[in-house]
């Protein structure tokens, strides 16, 4: 049977978004006048995944793993070094200026920092109306006021708030404004780049619930980027774990959290403390040694081998492909992948 990139049988045709071999290297240069390249930070180094209509794909990893760079390149805020990203069959990375502008209606973003992502000199109304000034046929001029009210109400704000400025809102409210802005063009995909990690614990849940409601209501697919594994589990249908520019394991949420096969996923999951003292007391913790190597000079072969307790010679020589090699049901980039339960549900 034909299987897709995630090892599942192809049943429902072409996915909404298909990323193939995405690479983003930032050149390291030396010299002021005559710049010469002395190396490259391999922020993203060949990742592939698919996103289906209406689903949430969690992209999880620690800082420096390249997850935010994936977001920027998918939106063409950064130009990729190599690779393809097909949105409804069209390669995003090959689009010209005009086609790219049209694509903006389909893929939107919600940023992490609710303080930096809203222009402090614009009122909330202006911020939400601006997309329609750029894409003037989405909402006719005379209906914009009413649409702003609808949107503000939809994200849980007061329509009268339109005349106020971002600094007059709390972090959670600003994030709602950012979500309203992302909804203005009726996108099919929203890339959420750490949308709740800057918020207080008691406010995070409000924003996550809002995102879920919006997904149900409008059928939007999310690429949900976060470092908080609990948050990712809560919101995601499928999860991709990134380490040093690569996806090391990808699969359904249940597969990743209950049957992880890659040592890094296992270590990551076991490092997250669970808010229950009794469970914590009985847990074994895998404590990794050392730090993440520099992405400017990643290890040969498997990138995780320098911190991995299973590493053998082959790991330094041969880069393990992201495939389901032992029939675990989901792909994992490890020569010695095996299921180890680290979270008891």
């Amino acid at each position: 049977m034909a299987t897709d990139l995630n090892g599942r049988p192809r049943t429902d045709g072409e996915p909404l978004l298909r990323v193939e071999g995405l690479v983003k290297h930032f050149p390291l240069t030396q010299g002021i006048v005559f710049r010469k390249q002395i190396g490259a930070v391999q922020a993203v180094d060949g990742i592939s995944f698919e996103l289906r209509r209406g689903e949430t794909l969690g992209l999880v990893g620690e800082s420096g793993c390249g997850k935010s760079t994936v977001a920027k390149t998918l939106l063409r805020l950064e130009e990729p070094t190599a690779g393809h990203a097909y949105f409804q069959g069209k390669d995003i990375f090959a689009l010209g200026k005009r086609e790219l502008r049209a694509l903006r209606r389909d893929i939107q973003i919600v940023f992490q920092d609710p303080y930096a992502s809203l222009n402090p000199r614009m009122t909330v109304g202006d911020i939400i109306t601006e997309p329609w000034e750029i894409h003037s046929d989405v909402v006719p001029k005379d209906q914009r006021d009413a649409r702003v009210s609808d949107l503000l109400r939809r994200v849980g704000l007061n329509p009268d708030d339109r005349n106020r400025y971002p600094h007059q809102f709390s972090g959670g409210q600003r994030q709602r404004i950012g979500i309203a802005r992302a909804l203005t063009l009726n996108p099919d995909v929203i890339i959420c780049d750490e949308p709740v990690s800057a918020l207080d614990v008691s406010v995070q849940a409000q924003v996550m619930n809002l995102l879920e409601e919006i997904q149900d209501e409008f059928g939007i697919a999310f690429v949900f980027i976060a470092h908080d594994l609990s948050v990712v589990r809560h919101i995601s249908d499928r999860v991709a774990v990134m380490y040093l520019g690569r996806i090391v394991e990808i699969g359904d949420e249940k597969d990743i959290y209950e049957r992880p096969t890659h040592p890094y996923t296992q270590a990551l999951l076991s490092a997250v403390p669970i808010p229950d003292p009794d469970i914590e007391a009985g847990r074994d913790r895998i404590v990794l040694e050392g730090d993440v190597p520099s992405p400017a000079n990643p290890p040969s072969g498997c990138r995780f081998r320098t911190r991995c307790w299973k590493a053998e010679d082959i790991c330094a020589e041969e880069d393990p492909a992201l495939i389901d090699r032992f029939g675990h049901g989901h792909p994992s980039a490890c020569h010695f992948a095996e299921i180890r339960e680290v979270v008891t549900s």
Binding site: L28, G64, G245, A296
Partner: peptide, 28 residues
């Protein structure tokens, strides 16, 4: 041990030029 290249702030040394690390400390 990684004596990494963070010395030059213009270089996205930890692979993520948007400073995730700095931003990941929300609860000051």
């Amino acid at each position: 041990m990684s004596k990494d290249i963070k010395a030059d702030p213009a270089v996205p040394a930890d692979g993520d030029p948007y400073g995730e690390r700095i931003d990941e400390q929300p609860h000051r």
